[in-house]
């Protein structure tokens, strides 16, 4: 697979704080790559380095197999980015902002092209409004529009759904998926919301305190985790004995909390467990899958795993 973006031992320090610490990552052509980490993990610092806003103290960044530091001008021509919130010249209209920003790529888009992009992000009816009148969501969409203007191969989006309402988040997610599926773009998307990445990314990396914690395909990472189920039962003591008889270890494979039981297992599915309890005369009031990728992510970033 063709590598679009690669970092090697990328490091950035701010005084005594190491914001990014020997970070290695690889992004392949055509994939949506999720860049995850809690707030302050070093995601924005990494993205700022990828977009030449700041310079690494150590390590190298390769984009399209070229060193970024030496070829930033030619590389950035193929990159569209939103770094943090997309801020525009508020006193200019959406159209004028896009016209100017595209000219800085050395292209002179026609009015039709700009309107098409605005239409793609759902802002064609507000093309002549000053950006200061835009909502946060509209600015985010305009941000995506400006990142697409010059038809880049790689699109870097830094937490594009931050501050949006659920509907706005959904719209941006759909936009990102369509960028990948319809336009065949490589998308590098950072987020601190795991479920968001779960919904749109093929591969992901989780970083914490500037360091890589885990990297891989989203599906593989999901398979790797144990399923955790929460059961509310009529007879906890009996259920406990049944599980012990099935070689489950208390406080390792399962925990008891009042009349609830938290069971972690890869061996037995939830429906099988349900069947076992019922067949043994235990009434199952409720059961649901407790462990999600979100919890997994939180555990990793807390260093609990």
């Amino acid at each position: 697979m063709e590598i679009v973006l690669e970092t090697k031992s990328l490091t950035k320090k701010f005084k005594n704080i190491t914001a990014v610490d020997n970070l290695d990552l690889v992004v392949y052509k055509g994939e949506v790559f999720g860049f995850l980490g809690p707030n302050g993990a070093g995601k924005s610092t990494t993205i700022r380095m990828l977009t030449s806003l700041i310079y690494p103290d150590q390590g190298e960044i390769y984009l399209f197999n070229k060193k970024l530091t030496a070829n930033s001008k030619s590389i950035l021509r193929k990159v569209g980015a939103i770094v943090e919130s997309p801020d525009f010249y508020l006193y200019l209209t959406a159209f004028k902002n896009l016209e100017f920003l595209s000219q800085l790529y050395g292209i002179n888009p026609t009015r039709k092209q700009i309107m098409e992009i605005l239409d793609f992000v759902g802002l064609s009816n507000r093309w002549n409004s000053k950006v200061k009148t835009f909502s946060h969501g509209m600015k985010q969409r305009l941000g995506i529009a400006q990142a697409l203007l010059h038809d880049p191969d790689l699109i870097i989006l830094d937490e594009p759904t931050t501050g949006l309402d659920p509907q706005g988040m959904k719209e941006i997610r759909e936009l990102v998926i369509s960028l990948s599926k319809e336009k065949g773009k490589t998308v590098f998307i950072s987020s601190h919301l795991l479920y968001e990445v779960e919904l749109i990314a093929n591969r992901m990396i989780i970083i914490n305190r500037g360091k890589k914690v885990v990297e891989g395909y989203v599906k593989e990472l999901l398979n790797e985790e144990k399923a955790t189920y929460n059961f509310r039962l009529s007879n906890i003591e009996r259920a406990k004995n049944i599980l012990i008889s099935l070689n489950f270890e208390l406080n390792h494979d399962f925990e008891v909390n009042g009349n609830e039981m938290l069971i972690s297992t890869k061996r037995i599915s939830a429906s099988q467990l349900n069947k076992i309890f019922v067949e043994n005369g235990i009434e199952v009031f409720e059961f649901y899958r407790k462990r999600t990728l979100e919890e997994y992510f939180l555990e990793i970033t807390r260093g609990q795993k």
Binding site: S72, K73, S74, I75, L76, V83, D87, F88, G106
Partner: peptide, 8 residues
């Protein structure tokens, strides 16, 4: 950010 992420 808009300005410097352009190829200028």
């Amino acid at each position: 950010r808009m300005l410097i992420t352009r190829p200028i």
